[in-house]
């Protein structure tokens, strides 16, 4: 092989590998971009940043004041292992469930009546619009006095928190029904009571469901308040009292568990809405 030819081959090879390299670079670039998109869209970047800032912040101070994520995880594992966390979670779960369901049972009928009847609306609306600005926490001592230090006062507090989003959305649902929808039932011979059962209720299901979802959020949020006083167990209790035992790390565990439970519960509820209530027009929504 002559020198020139070799040079030629070499040059050809070089250009080929160069274009190959260009191609790979492009691929990697697009992979990186897709990966970044994936991480961003699924919240990994948010969480990564949070953990990073948290860990860095914790390094500047002591573990009593601000335990880092690693310390918090260690603390969390400790109470998972000794069964405390599961015990507390079960107790809080039951309280939220009972309060929330009771709230729904009270708020849906009220919302339907207020949405349907002008008189009810005129009586109830000022009341609703006053108390929805008073948070459940404002009632803690009153509820302790009225319902005692047992479960009732805690459940009552959660119920209170659930009632407003559920009732307000139910009212909106009933009131947004088109007069045409009602007229269609009337012209087919439906009585007012039949219209209420076969049109008003099913037509408001999507909004009632939105209210129920928001109500679940309110119930979970108010568990901390409900377990602030006169509680011996629970996630709220854990968050509220860990400081007294110098276990700041458990506060973070409690916060994490609370957020995660809310997130999962809402996911589950949305899945229920999408499947079981699909025909009422409950669709995927944020």
């Amino acid at each position: 092989m002559t020198d020139s030819r070799r040079r030629y081959i070499f040059a050809a090879h070089e250009t080929q590998s160069e274009s190959e390299m260009n191609c790979t670079v492009k691929k990697i670039k697009s992979l990186l971009k897709n990966g970044w998109e994936f991480l961003l869209a699924n919240g990994f970047i948010t969480w990564g940043l949070l953990l990073l800032i948290w860990q860095l912040g914790s390094l500047t101070t002591n573990a009593q004041f601000l335990p880092g994520p690693i310390a918090a995880i260690k603390g969390g594992i400790e109470i998972v292992q000794n069964g405390l966390l599961l015990d507390y979670l079960g107790i809080s779960f039951l309280r939220v469930l009972r309060g929330w369901l009771l709230g729904i049972a009270i708020a849906v009928p009220i919302g339907l009546a207020v949405g349907q009847f002008r008189t009810f609306r005129l009586i109830f609306e000022p009341f609703v619009n006053f108390f929805r600005f008073v948070p459940a926490i404002g009632f803690i001592t009153l509820f302790l006095m009225w319902f005692g230090i047992g479960e009732s006062s805690k459940v009552a507090l959660i119920t209170y928190a659930a009632i407003f989003p559920v009732s307000i959305n139910t009212i909106a649902g009933v009131m947004s029904i088109s007069p045409i929808t009602i007229q269609v039932a009337q012209s087919q011979g439906a009585s007012p009571f039949q219209i209420f059962c076969t049109v008003t209720i099913p037509a408001s299901v999507p909004q009632i469901f939105t209210g129920i979802r928001l109500g679940l959020g309110g119930s979970i949020v108010s568990i901390v308040g409900a377990e602030m006083l006169a509680a011996q167990k629970g996630i709220g209790y854990l968050i509220y009292t860990s400081r007294l035992y110098y276990r700041t790390d458990w506060i973070f565990t409690g916060i994490f568990i609370l957020g995660l439970s809310g997130f999962l519960a809402d996911r589950l509820l949305r899945l229920f809405g999408r499947t079981a209530l699909k025909r009422f027009g409950v669709r995927e929504s944020k």
């Binding site: 269609v184 009337q186 012209s187």
Partner: peptide, 30 residues
């Protein structure tokens, strides 16, 4: 007042057909 002797057909079908009932059930409603 409205009566079954008079059937109504509205332009806005989205309000005039019950969205939670299928075709059969909508027609069977009355």
């Amino acid at each position: 007042k409205p009566g079954v002797d008079r059937g109504v057909v509205f332009q806005n079908a989205d309000s005039a057909i019950f969205s939670w009932l299928n075709v059969w059930d909508n027609i069977e409603y009355g």
